[in-house]
């Protein structure tokens, strides 16, 4: 690990100012990802700006929805009564992630910003375009069982590993960020990006910008939700594939639906086409299967992850079935 300096800030303004001063500074939230990256020499900030004392950990109801502060811990969000009442999918997704110890430390902002778990990215002795642009992609032609089937490029096939983000993209969340030029809002679906030719860039947050909060607009989708995560062991493993489904069902018909997948792309993968197709149709397994097939049109696998072409649609169907079966 490199030597670095550490500063603790207590206001948004000082946080943003501290970042502007030092080109290699980084925000430190729960530290569950950043510290690991520093230990393995992947990220080498010379200054850590500890934002844990900023007043950004609240979860509150607004006129239009819930506002969750960027520093709210994953556990606090998952167990919050308002979240469970209005957006059970978010609570389910959070609980499917990591371990209780990690969730007690991890924050909403940090979870969004966590980097891929692609091993070549973590091992500085291996090629990786995301860590070291131009060095090649170790995963292509290598161990790519965990990798993307949607939106990958010939530069990078990594996936975003978050469970929480799958729920947030499905729930049409809006991210508020603040930077030297003031605040701006980013729809959750536009927050993360596809790798293209610049896989080193995970998302559209500008350097020095601070995530302030995530707003989730109220919806009618809380009765029938399910987050299904398929993984190599029963807990404490990243998703091979996950699917989050939230539906409003009236008289057996789907009147509204949100659907997204994790573990399949460089960003949480919203399935808008499938949603549109399902709307107004009866909530039957047959329809779920058709929607799942529709979702797979653009899928493309690597040598090691071809199973995802079967697993992904099956996971969508299972998530929808289980969601529909909720009382």
């Amino acid at each position: 690990m490199n030597q670095f300096s550490y500063v603790r800030v207590t206001s948004k303004e000082s946080a943003i100012a501290a970042m502007a001063k030092d080109k290699t500074a980084m925000f430190l939230a729960g530290g569950t990802n950043l510290v690991d990256l520093m230990k393995s020499g992947v990220t080498n900030p010379e200054r850590l700006v500890d934002i844990n004392k900023l007043p950004l950990a609240t979860i509150e109801e607004t006129k239009t929805g819930l506002r969750i502060g960027a520093l709210a811990k994953n556990t606090a969000v998952a167990e919050n009564a308002l979240v469970i009442k209005h957006f059970p999918l978010l609570s389910q997704a959070l609980k499917a992630g990591a371990s209780p110890q990690l969730r007690n430390m991890a924050t909403v902002g940090g979870n969004m910003m966590q980097r891929t778990r692609c091993h070549y990215f973590y091992d500085t002795a291996m090629p990786c375009n995301k860590r070291n642009p131009g060095s090649g992609c170790g995963a292509i032609g290598g161990f790519n069982r965990m990798h993307a089937i949607f939106g990958a490029s010939d530069k990078c096939i990594a996936v975003h590993p978050s469970d929480m983000c799958v729920a947030l993209v499905a729930l049409d969340a809006i991210v508020t960020v603040a930077g030297p030029k003031g605040e701006r809002k980013i729809p959750f679906g536009d927050f993360h990006r596809l790798p293209g030719d610049t896989p080193q860039q995970d998302n559209n947050l500008q350097r020095g910008e601070l995530i302030i909060a995530v707003d989730i607009p109220f919806n009618q989708l809380s009765a029938n939700t399910h987050y299904l995560k398929v993984r190599d062991r029963a807990s404490y493993a990243f998703a091979l594939v996950s699917a989050g489904a939230a539906m409003q069902i009236k008289g057996g018909n789907i009147t509204d639906v949100r659907l997204a997948m994790g573990g399949v792309a460089h960003k949480p993968w919203r399935l808008k086409e499938a949603e549109a197709w399902l709307k107004g149709k009866p909530a039957t397994e047959e329809n779920f299967r058709k929607a799942a097939e529709l979702s797979m049109a653009q899928a493309k696998s690597q040598e090691g992850n071809a199973f995802k072409l079967t697993l992904a649609p099956n996971t969508i169907v299972e998530a929808l079935k289980t969601a529909a079966a909720q009382a």
């Binding site: 778990r117 091993h119 062991r233 029963a234």
Partner: peptide, 15 residues
Amino acid sequence: VNNNLADYHVPVSAD
């Protein structure tokens, strides 16, 4: 490519 306890899966209690 999985030389850590997050990626080398020993069974957890839930298993």
